[in-house]
Design a protein around this nucleic acid. Structure first.
Length: 819
RNA sequence: GCGAGAGUGGCGGAACGGUAGACGCGCUAGACUUAGGAUCUAGUGAGGAAACUCAUGCGGGUUCAAAUCCCGCCUCUCGCACCA
């Protein structure tokens, strides 16, 4: 008998698939489509480890399963090759990003091919290819024309390590998401995208998506919509007694009568105008200090509150009370209006601040559970709802009624209005780096800011010698006169190009639209092909993109939808996040996510050599539930490898003399089809594989093999296993005499009637404890079943001298006798 | 602090409120072998000679019956965190 030779088989089928163009997806077809997309990787220099494999295997099994179900499946792959990760890798190695990226792609593509996935490589895309980024620039111009891209001087997150500005989303705990450096604030002219305009749409459309709840919640929190009231306080300058209108945002207008002071963010523009001369120096020092304080510290909850009194006063519009105006860095310039009314009795932060600076606390919401000392004073803020007190004509109302009434009152008097605030900020879209899409804008001394005409796209990234970030706040492109100097597209005068480039995320915001026709010349995407293929039916990738990429891609999709270019406003119908593969790290001694820096990676190359791709694919899935993190066990793969070998032997043993269909086997077959189908549908690939193992254990019993197994059972088994172990199943399929690929077959069907058996085994319990087991016909009457149960030897013993108080009989399930 | 998820053998993990530990790793014994780190067979939660008892993070509850449902804790992981 031929032994299972994974090397030979895998090499053979990979070549056949390539020669036959087996994975080439037809552009358009009569079949229903299924778009199964992996989050495309950036071409990293460290290559793939078994953790990366997991997601790719998962999506490939799903894609192949859908193909067997008769769908026309699109399962493409490409490269997210612009941006910080690729550029930092190049700088570290001292190789030009273009060369380094090419090399990395070559290596990763080789590794990806080892997985044996059905990627249609003829559709490969690469975001740093001018034929691709031409269209990224084109989309930017469409946004620019609609006012969705604009330039603004603003304090942005500056990473001193990467020497570039970052988006809010790229700052994690005050540190750069890429390099871990502390991010500082820097005032810079930046290109911005007006993502806030889409805040509500990004929020409300989440509810129709089949996404993990966790990711949806993260996006909801990130958008951070909160409804409230803008209240206008009058501020009288202590410098010159001039009056200014100061809007503040609050979600609790019901506490307005409890406002005993006002706090401005140190960066608030009005501060300079209202501060008294004696306080000017102190205020200036405070502002300087807070600018220098790293965001991470400034925002720390534990930190004691600080602040300075401006000696100016504000008028509370609702009762004309004069209250002091302070500045403090616990008020953020970037949220709401950058100013708050402070209600110490009902806000913890305000309470803390009031205690420190001896400011009055006035209760305006009464509740019996307010935390008080013996004298009846609040010992901390009561932040819940209640009934209004000390609130003039509004006293006696509930918080909810009061919010409505007070807002109405303010609106009528022109002193306030209902508003909505968001945590979401506009997207900082400029990077002062070389390796990215040049922003297609020209500055003309006569015409000002001029967009590059579409016919002149792409604005090519010049070939340069020096590509390292400058740290001056300008991109390295600034030093390339051939790039910078151009002529104005409008008037022809000498002009300068924008030298900032787009962020890493730009290309991935729309790549899923390009795959349906990746070589299309006339437009970013082929509308016809997009109409057929989009939206993406299943999007598979890591949870780390829960906010950044997924939010940005949704934003681009919505913009393109509003501009009439596409007919759907959500790109990814279903999202699946695979769990991370972890392993004990020698350095830390902890079980951590696999990564090169932690030194706990497992290289798939050696495993493929020793056990084969198919055994590794199986183990990647068998290791645990796909959505859960898992711990890699080095010897675990032995199990799936042995499984394949045993199955191989059984099929070869059977192939020359298949038996007739036998009832027991047919029933087991239908049971298997049912189980496997259900488990795959529910993404329970780990238990699907254990189902195959159980079936093989059943088949390998001598009595089963001796009595014979029919051909159809084995063929169905092979078809069902083929998404998991494609090379292995193709080979056995051929050995069984088929000349067509197994992936041309269709998924087997089950007959529920055949699954249900006439005989069932029923556990018998006494007082809920298992005491025996009964084999019964399914339709046995309750009475007969109970009698039989009572006569079981073991059961009899327990019933001796006892009285049966209650009998539980669940047909086909259980018998429980209570004594 | 807030929000979400998870705690089951030596290990990875199975279990529509109904036989806890499927399947696999590892381990033990045996078979075949010059050999076995290949393969096959049997066993493998703990205690006990056995009958049996005890076991799903801890403590309560509901139920004939709870890993599963409810209440209260503990631990871990992840996300958010002065957002007014």
């Amino acid at each position: 008998m031929i032994p299972y030779d994974h090397k030979k088989i895998e090499r053979k089928w990979r070549k056949i698939w390539e020669d036959r163009e087996a994975h080439k997806t037809p552009q358009i077809s009569d079949k229903s489509k299924y778009y199964c997309l992996d989050m495309f990787p950036y071409p990293s220099g460290s290559g793939l480890h078994v953790g990366h494999w997991r997601g790719y295997v998962l999506s490939d099994v799903w894609a192949r399963y859908k193909k067997l179900q008769g769908y026309n499946v699109l399962h493409p792959m490409g490269w997210d090759s612009f941006g910080l990760p690729a550029e930092n890798d190049a700088i570290k190695k001292g190789i030009h990003p273009k060369i380094n990226t090419q090399r990395n792609i070559q290596n990763m593509k080789r590794q990806l091919k080892e997985i044996g996935a059905m990627y249609d490589w003829s559709r490969e895309i690469n975001t740093s290819d001018p034929r691709y980024y031409k269209w990224t620039q084109w989309i930017f111009l469409q946004m620019y024309k609609r006012g969705l891209a604009y330039k603004k001087l603003m304090p942005i997150n500056w990473c001193p390590g990467c020497k570039t500005g970052l988006a809010n989303e790229e700052v994690i705990e005050g540190k750069c998401e890429r390099c871990g450096s502390r991010v500082v604030k820097k005032d810079m002219e930046q290109w911005m995208l007006r993502i806030t305009e889409y805040a509500d749409s990004l929020l409300y459309d989440l509810k129709n998506l089949d996404w993990p709840e966790k990711v949806k919640v993260m996006q909801v929190n990130w958008i951070g919509r909160s409804e409230g009231t803008e209240v206008i306080f009058k501020v009288i300058s202590s410098k010159d007694s001039r009056e200014y209108n100061l809007p503040v945002f609050t979600t609790r207008p019901d506490t307005l009568f409890g406002a005993t002071y006002v706090v401005l963010s140190p960066e608030h523009e009005i501060v300079q105008k209202i501060v008294s001369s004696p306080k000017e120096r102190e205020v200036f020092e405070y502002i300087k200090h807070s600018k220098e304080t790293p965001e991470i510290e400034r925002v720390s909850v534990e930190r004691e509150k600080t602040g300075v009194f401006t000696e100016a006063y504000a008028i509370n519009p609702v009762n004309n009370e004069k209250i002091p105006v302070w500045i403090s860095d616990y008020v953020l310039i970037s949220y709401g209006t950058g100013a708050i009314m402070a209600v110490p009795a009902h806000d913890e932060r305000d309470f803390e601040f009031a205690k420190k600076f001896c400011l009055p606390v006035r209760e305006v919401i009464y509740h019996k559970d307010s935390p008080r000392d013996k004298k009846g004073n609040l010992i901390k803020a009561y932040t819940g709802e209640g009934r209004l007190i000390n609130s003039g004509e509004f006293s006696g109302l509930s918080s909810e009624e009061a919010r409505e009434k007070i807002t109405q009152w303010l609106t009528k008097k022109g002193l306030g209005k209902k508003t909505v605030s968001y945590k979401l900020r506009d997207w900082v879209f400029s990077r002062q780096r070389y390796w990215g899409e040049p922003i297609p804008i020209v500055y003309c001394p006569k015409c000002g800011e001029v967009p590059v005409p579409e016919k002149d796209l792409p604005v090519r990234l010049p070939e340069v010698e020096r590509y390292k970030p400058t740290g001056t706040g300008k991109s390295p492109l600034e030093n390339i006169p051939e790039f910078v100097n151009t002529i104005c597209p409008t008037c022809g005068s000498p002009a300068r190009r924008e030298t900032d480039t787009m962020p890493q995320w730009a290309g991935s915001c729309w790549y899923f639209l390009r795959y349906p026709n990746p070589h299309f010349q006339e437009f970013p995407f082929d509308k016809e092909a997009v109409r057929y293929w989009l939206p993406v039916d299943a999007y598979i990738g890591g949870i780390e993109h829960a906010i950044l990429h997924l939010l940005y891609a949704r934003f681009f999709t919505k913009v393109l939808y509003d501009l009439g270019y596409i007919e759907f406003n959500e790109p990814f119908k279903r999202l699946f996040n695979q769990g991370m593969v972890c392993r004990r790290s020698e350095k830390s001694g902890k079980v951590e996510k696999m990564s090169k820096s932690k030194g706990n990676v497992v290289n798939p190359d050696e495993l493929v050599k020793k056990y084969g791709t198919d055994a590794l694919r199986l183990y990647e899935l068998f290791i645990g539930p796909p959505e859960a993190d898992c711990e890699w066990t080095d010897r675990g793969i032995e199990g799936t490898y042995r499984f394949l070998k045993r199955m191989w032997d059984i099929v070869l043993k059977l192939k020359d003399n298949f038996g007739k269909e036998r009832e027991t086997i047919v029933k087991r077959r239908h049971r298997l089809i049912y189980d496997i189908t259900q488990r795959i549908e529910n993404f329970k690939f780990n238990t699907a594989i254990s189902g195959f193992m159980e079936f093989i254990n059943f088949l390998s019993k001598d009595e089963v093999l001796d009595k014979g197994v029919d051909k159809e059972t084995i063929e169905d088994l092979l078809i069902m296993l083929s998404p998991f172990a494609p090379h292995f199943c193709e080979e056995l399929w051929e050995i069984l005499g088929h000349s067509r690929s197994i992936f041309e077959e269709s998924w087997p069907k089950y007959d529920l009637k055949l699954i249900e058996s006439d005989m069932v085994s029923i556990p018998v319990q006494i007082n809920g404890k298992l005491r025996g087991e009964l084999r019964l016909r399914k339709d046995t009457s309750e009475q007969e079943a109970i009698e039989k149960a009572k006569s079981l030897g073991k059961v009899k013993k327990y019933l001796e001298g006892k009285e049966i108080k209650k009998v539980i009989f669940v047909p086909g399930k259980i018998i429980n006798l209570v004594v």
